[in-house]
Amino acid sequence: MNGLRVAALVAATITTGLTAGVYWAYATAFMPGLAKVDDKTFVGAFQAADRAIVGPVFLGLGFVGALLLTALAGLLSLKEKALPWIAVAFALYLITVIVTIAVNVPMNDALKAAGDPNTIDVTAARAAFDEARWRTFNNLRVVLGLASTGLLGWALYLTGKSAAQP
């Protein structure tokens, strides 16, 4: 059981970190880069990126996987010193999931539903998207995702420390 607990905690830490990294990449590179392009390029690139990210690798292994693996790590650590850290990490990551589903995904979907950038009013579509709002909530996901990853890392440290004690 100890091996499974550690494996679940390692996997939770990795997947949470990867997901936080995606949010970080959007915050530090993707959105700032798109902010500098014309409306047609913005709408087309964002639509294409959003279609690409909605798939089993990011959604299954990363986004949902991080939540499920953190829950599993917590369940396998019920009598361990690491449990409070795992629980808080789970709660913070759950908030990123809620924000994603409640804010970012509907905004993404609305921009995709606006239509083909070759046939729509891309200036209106971009304005309706509200980049500042999207970035604000993405930045929240970055902070919470990184904090969750850090807490899981601390839980790993505590797990290793208690395993090393006789």
Rank of each mutant, 00 (worst) to 15 (best):
N2H: 12
N2W: 04
G3I: 12
G3C: 09
L4T: 13
L9Y: 05
V10A: 10
V10C: 06
T13H: 08
T15C: 07
L18D: 02
L18S: 10
G21R: 08
V22H: 06
Y23L: 03
A27P: 00
T28Y: 07
T28R: 11
F30V: 15
G33I: 09
A35S: 13
A35Y: 13
V37A: 07
D38Y: 14
D38K: 15
D39C: 08
K40A: 07
K40F: 01
T41K: 13
V43S: 04
G44C: 02
G44V: 04
A45L: 12
F46E: 00
A52W: 03
G55I: 03
G60E: 01
G62W: 06
G62E: 02
G62C: 09
F63W: 13
G65V: 05
L67R: 10
A71P: 00
L72K: 14
A73F: 12
L78H: 15
L78T: 15
K81N: 03
K81Q: 04
K81V: 02
A82V: 06
A82T: 08
W85H: 14
V88T: 11
A89W: 09
I95H: 11
I95G: 13
I98S: 03
T100L: 04
T100V: 04
I101V: 10
N104M: 06
V105M: 01
V105W: 01
V105F: 01
V105N: 03
M107N: 08
M107A: 13
D109L: 14
K112T: 01
G115R: 15
D116P: 00
P117D: 04
N118R: 15
N118P: 01
V122N: 14
A124W: 08
A124G: 07
A124T: 11
A124F: 08
R126G: 02
A127T: 14
A127P: 03
F129G: 07
D130G: 13
E131G: 12
R133T: 01
W134T: 06
R135W: 02
F137V: 05
L140W: 12
L140F: 10
V143S: 07
L146G: 06
S148L: 01
G150S: 09
G153H: 07
W154A: 09
L156Q: 12
T159H: 06
G160V: 09
G160F: 08
K161V: 02
A164S: 09
Q165E: 12
